[in-house]
C-alpha cells in the first residue's frame, strides 16, 4: 500500500510539473504568433470591412486594454498569479467575459461528441478486431483489414467535408443546414428526452466522423493483440480442458487481448480536443476545437491559453488515470507490486 501511495504521489507531482511547463511554453508560444491582437484587429477591419486606418486604429485604442508593449515577463507574472488563483483572465475581444465561462460553454459539447465517438469506435473496433483474428485469412478478415486501413488513413476533416458535399449538397440526403450546430434554434437546453434527442440529431454527423476515422486503428490493433493472445499457453490449456469456444473467447482471449488497448483508450480520450478542431468547424459544431480555431485567428491570447491549458490538463489527467487504472485492470501488474 505504501508503494502504491508513493507511486501515486510521484505521478501526481509529475503531472503538475508537466502542466506548469506546458502552460509556460504555450504562454510564450502564443505571443510568438505573427501579429498581436491589436494589429490583427486593425488589419481585419481594413481588409474585410474597408474601414480606414484612422477609424480602425481609433476603435482599437478604445477597445483593447491589452498593451502589446508591456514587458513579457510582467505579462507572464500576471498570468501565473492568475493561474494560481484559478483565474484565466478575460477574453481580450469580449471584455468582461471570463475565459473559464467561455471555455465551459464550449467544452462539454466536445467532451460529449468526441468522447462518445471514441467509446463507440472502441467498442465496435475491438469487437471487429476479435472477429478478424478468429477468422484470420478469411474474406471477412481481408475485407475488414482493407476497410480499417482505408478509414484510418483518411483525415477526419476531409471525410467531414466529403460527407457534407456528397450527402448534403450532391445527393441532398442530409439536411445539412438543419444539422449544423449543437442543437436546434429555439430549443431550450434541459434534461428532457426531446432535448437529448435533438442533441443527438446534431451530434450524429461529428460522432459518425470520429467513429469512422478512428475505428480502423482499434480494429487492427485488437486483431494483432487477439492473435497474440490466442497463442498463449493458457488458451491451449483451456481448450484442452474442453471449454466451449464462446467461453474461451470472452473469458480468456477477449479480456486479455483488450488490456493493452485500455491505456491507449485513456490517452485517446485525452486528445479529444485536438482531434475535433476542423471537424467542428466543418459542421459548425459548438465545441472547443471551433473556439480554438477562432481564438488562434484573432489572437485572443487569454482564451487561447485557457483552451491549451484545458487540453494539457485533459491529456495529463488521462495519462495519470491510465497509469493508476492499469494496475487495477491487470492483476499481473498488481502482483508484481510495481503498479
Amino acid at each position: 500500500m505504501a508503494i502504491l501511495k508513493r507511486y501515486a504521489v510521484r505521478r501526481v507531482l509529475k503531472a503538475l510539473l508537466t502542466v506548469y511547463l506546458v502552460a509556460t511554453g504555450t504562454f510564450f508560444l502564443v505571443r510568438m504568433l505573427p501579429g498581436n491582437p491589436v494589429e490583427v484587429y486593425i488589419n481585419t477591419q481594413m481588409s474585410q470591412y474597408g474601414v480606414s486606418y484612422a477609424e480602425a486604429s481609433s476603435q482599437a485604442a478604445g477597445l483593447f486594454s491589452f498593451n502589446p508593449n508591456e514587458p513579457l515577463i510582467q505579462q507572464y507574472g500576471d498570468f501565473l498569479a492568475g493561474l494560481v488563483r484559478g483565474d484565466l483572465g478575460e477574453s481580450l475581444l469580449a471584455p468582461g467575459t471570463s475565459v473559464l465561462d467561455i471555455v465551459f460553454e464550449y467544452l462539454p459539447w466536445t467532451l460529449f461528441s468526441v468522447g462518445l465517438g471514441v467509446l463507440i469506435s472502441f467498442a465496435l473496433g475491438i469487437t471487429l478486431g476479435m472477429l478478424m483474428a478468429y477468422w484470420r485469412e478469411s474474406w471477412l478478415d481481408h475485407a475488414l483489414s482493407l476497410i480499417g486501413s482505408l478509414l484510418q488513413s483518411v483525415p477526419n476533416y476531409l471525410l467531414a467535408m466529403l460527407v457534407v458535399v456528397f450527402f448534403g449538397v450532391q445527393l441532398e440526403i442530409l439536411p445539412i443546414a438543419d444539422m449544423r450546430g449543437a442543437y436546434s434554434p429555439g430549443v431550450t437546453p434541459n434534461l428532457s428526452f426531446d432535448f437529448l434527442s435533438d442533441v443527438m440529431y446534431h451530434a450524429g454527423l461529428p460522432i459518425t466522423i470520429y467513429v469512422l476515422t478512428t475505428i480502423g486503428g482499434w480494429m487492427l490493433v485488437m486483431k494483432s493483440s487477439t492473435v497474440e493472445t490466442l497463442g498463449e499457453d493458457y488458451v491451449t490449456v483451456a481448450r484442452a480442458r474442453g471449454l466451449t469456444d464462446g467461453r474461451i473467447r470472452s473469458a480468456y482471449v477477449g479480456r486479455n487481448a483488450v488490456l493493452p488497448l485500455v491505456p491507449q483508450l485513456a490517452i485517446t480520450l485525452g486528445f479529444v480536443v485536438g482531434g475535433s478542431i476542423l471537424v467542428e468547424q466543418v459542421f459548425q459544431y459548438q465545441g472547443i476545437g471551433y473556439l480554438l480555431f477562432q481564438s488562434v485567428q484573432r489572437r485572443d491570447y487569454p482564451v487561447l491559453q485557457g483552451i491549451l491549458l484545458v487540453v494539457t490538463i485533459a491529456v495529463v489527467a488521462a495519462n495519470l488515470i491510465a497509469d493508476l487504472l492499469y494496475g487495477r485492470l491487470d492483476p499481473r501488474v498488481r502482483l508484481n507490486g510495481e503498479e
Binding site: S184, V187, D194, F195, L196, S197, D198, Y201
Partner: peptide, 8 residues
C-alpha cells in the same frame, strides 16, 4: 432520435 419539436 431526431430534431426537436420545439425547433424553429
Amino acid at each position: 432520435c431526431g430534431k426537436s419539436e420545439q425547433a424553429t
